[in-house]
Each structure stands twice: as C-alpha cells, then as structure tokens.
Design a binder for these strands. Structure first.
Lengths: 166, 166
DNA sequence: TATTGTTATACTCTATAACTATA
DNA sequence: TATAGTTATAGAGTATAACAATA
C-alpha cells in the first residue's frame, strides 16, 4: 500500500472523530457545547487573555471567538473587563461560577470516556493523546501562516501534562 | 496524574482535531465538504447501499444523511434508483462522475496531509490511524445502542487496509 | 402498526466582509 | 493607516419532530 493511501485512510479516520464530539455534546448540558468547555478549559490553563489570543489557541476566526465568548459571558461564566493598556481590547477572565461549570463539564467528559474506553490501557490513551497533540502542532503551522503577525502559538493544548515515556 | 485527567486531556486533543477538518474544507472545492467526500468514499468501498445503511456508517441521523445525499445527487455524483425489494427505499450508487470526483478529492486530501505531515514517519501515521479506528469502534457501540434494530456496524471505516504490525 | 425516507424547524459552527473604536 | 473587536450575512452540520409512502 502506498503512502498516499495511508494518508487517505488517516483522513477518513480523522473525519470519524466527529462522532466522538457529537456524543460529548449529547452528554453536556444545554448551553454548554464542547467548544464552550474548551474555552473555559483554556482560560483555566493559560489564565486571563484577550480575544485575539483565545482565537489563536482555538485556531478559529476572531469573529467566531467573539460570539462564543459572548455566549459564555451572558451566562456569567466568564467576565470581560476593559484592558487598561489598550482600550480596544478586553481581558477575559474565568468567574467562580465558570470554574464550577468547568469542573462539572470536565467530570462529565471524563465519565463519558471512562465508559467508552473501559478496555483501553492507560498507555494507549496517553499514546493517542500524544499523537493528536503532535498532529495539532503540525497543522498549527498553517494557521499562523494564514494569520501573519501572530506569534507561533506552538503546542497549543499540551504544555502542562508530563511527557509520556513510551 | 490520575486517569481522569488523562481522559480530559484526550478529549481536549480530540476537540482540536476540528482544525484539521477545517483545513481540509478550505482545500476542497466548492460543493465538496469533507462529509461529501466521506459519502463518496463509503459508496466506493462498500458498494451500493440504502440511506439507512449509509446513516449507520456515518453515525449521524438519517435526516442528515438524506440531505447530504440530495446534495450529491443533484450534482450527478450519486444516483438514487428505486429498490425493487422495498419501494420505500432507494439504492444509492456512485456514478462515473462521482468516481472521478472522488479521485480528485482523495488526491487533494492526500496532498494536504503529505504537506503537513512531512516529518512524520509512516509508522507514526499508521499507528495514529489504527488508534483512531479503535476509538471509532469504541464509540460505535453507543450509536447502535441509541438506534436499536441496526446491526452492529462494527468497524465502520477500516475493514480493508492490512493490519499494522507495530 | 411499524418502518423508510423526506421535509420543516431550530440551533451550532464557521468564514467573509462591513463596521466601530482605538492606536 | 492599521489593529482589536463586534456584528451581519451566509452556508454547512446536526438533531427533533411532523409527515408521506410502503410494509
């Protein structure tokens, strides 16, 4: 089998990942899409930030990020205070209610995976996580190419966890 | 680090896969979303089938599948002929134009991955593919639970390729 | 009555483009 | 003039429910 065919097969499997996201959205409460959960998690992990930085981490357009943030702000889970250094910007901050919400969402997420992946070894879970992080890195390059001026956001989602020693 | 945290990390990385799909959709021509490409690929791989079976393979609702199929049919890429055995159903078949289209889409897909994954070894690509296929299998179980009456569609997307001997 | 498929409705995700306010 | 963010618009993805035709 040629390399090209393996790439096609990989892409097919990547498209199939959508069913995991759909399952997650079914399990999450109303008003809390998986994207909402991701935003809350990024704010907890990276701390306060501006919209532009969040858009960079999510790798979506700022307009998308703006609406997502509004959605979360009206529910009281994040707070937008003016940036004293640049009055065009606002600083996003996780509220204590947002933190509670995030805890709940993380619990449900972990529970779903625990149910579905009961027969996976911890090593397999970590290996898949690591490969996906690398995949994300490989694709982040092209995102920053399309958005000149942004710093190379590098490994957007896996800075904290300990290295996997396979 | 506890197991729960690894599950959360995995889910975060799975959400990040969306940026790969978005990249792909940018590269694909108008009227050909990644979902369209998936449908054409499934018809080629599994042969003629009914809407219900296709919905099963895609793991989405039949109403979604119906609209997707209409989209492809009006463009002449698939053909819907009445099922002689059950006149409620129609048989979906890839047309020769659809086959040409699929070839083009597969080429573009493989090219995108070849560019982005230039520094991946073939072993890594195959390992990730295999883990994703297994993930899909783990989640397919729950889909058939929500849709009683469908046969266990099992490993929906990776029947053909040779086993990876890691 | 149950099943296959379609259509209507609604909501989320996503990008582009036009706009506002500030730098 | 350029940048940060918002809003308007448009189109794809998704689910639920109502519906039609057939089994």
């Amino acid at each position: 089998m040629t390399e090209k065919t393996w790439y096609e097969e990989l892409m097919r499997q990547l498209s199939g990942v959508g069913c995991v996201r759909r399952e997650l959205n079914r399990v999450l409460p109303d008003g809390c899409s998986s994207n909402s959960a991701t935003v809350l998690a990024l704010l907890e992990r990276y701390g306060d930030m501006r919209i532009g930085r969040l858009a960079e981490l999510l790798a979506v357009d700022m307009s998308v990020t703006s609406r997502l943030v509004t959605h979360l702000a009206v529910r009281g889970w994040i707070d937008r205070s003016p940036d004293p250094a640049d009055r065009r910007s606002r600083i996003l901050r996780l509220t204590s209610q947002g933190r509670d919400r995030l805890t709940e969402l993380s619990d449900r997420t972990a529970q779903l995976l625990a149910e579905r992946l009961g027969d996976w070894s911890e090593e397999e879970v970590r290996l898949l996580t690591r490969l996906l992080a690398r995949l994300r890195t490989s694709f982040d390059v092209s995102w920053t190419e399309r958005h000149p001026g942004t710093e190379p956001s590098a490994d957007a989602l896996l800075p904290g966890p300990p290295a996997v020693t396979t």
